[in-house]
């Protein structure tokens, strides 16, 4: 809107800011095509990413073992959880290494190695450590990673009720 521009325009033939026929056609055709393809493809994309958007299920607690059976030495206990995996409903068996610490607090460790997911065992090599058979990761009784693995073993939420140990969802290790 400067004077200079104004001056220049005065000498040119009036410039019409209209779109050309060709532009109009390519916009309408392009728009219609985009609308039709979008209408078809967007529902499919939403359909495909649905698992990302569904709310994660609340963890429930499962009765695992009598409190009195828990010792200072970690022991493996198996328990089943009710799992709804899409259309497939099952009760897979999980396991936990449960023990008491010096203060008699009961805690439960996940058997899944934090290196690459193999299954660890207690005292396999007689060193009072958790050992992983895959790449020799080692953990203390509290699950602290001593070698190979980058993180300590995960813990289960523990609830004690009527003399029984109940295990809930997995959480990161809180002991080390």
């Amino acid at each position: 809107m400067s004077n200079h521009e104004h001056h220049e325009n005065a000498h040119k033939p009036a410039q019409r800011k209209e779109m050309s026929r060709r532009q109009f056609l390519s916009y309408t055709l392009g728009g219609t095509t985009a609308f039709m393809m979008g209408g078809a493809v967007l529902p499919m994309v939403r359909f495909a990413v649905d698992p990302l958007l569904v709310k994660k299920g609340e963890g429930t607690y499962v009765k695992v073992v009598e409190e009195s059976k828990i010792t200072n030495e970690p022991q493996e206990f198996k328990f089943t959880v009710h799992q709804i995996d899409g259309w497939y409903v099952s009760d897979p068996e999980l396991s936990a290494w449960i023990s008491k610490d010096e203060n008699n607090t009961i805690f439960a460790l996940s058997p899944v190695c934090k290196h690459l997911g193999c299954t660890i065992g207690w005292n396999v090599k007689g060193k009072n450590e958790f050992d992983c058979p895959c790449h020799d990761a080692r953990y203390t009784k509290d699950g602290k990673n001593l070698a190979v693995a980058p993180n300590p073993l995960d813990e289960y939420e523990v609830k004690l009720e009527d003399g029984f140990v109940y295990l809930g969802p997995i959480k990161p290790n809180t002991r080390v």
Partner: peptide, 20 residues
């Protein structure tokens, strides 16, 4: 059958994608 039932009724837009 269960997977079709699931994708049609439980997955967002499943009815539409299967309908198409």
């Amino acid at each position: 059958y269960a997977s079709v039932d699931y994708l049609q009724h439980k997955v967002a837009f499943g009815q539409i994608v299967r309908g198409m």
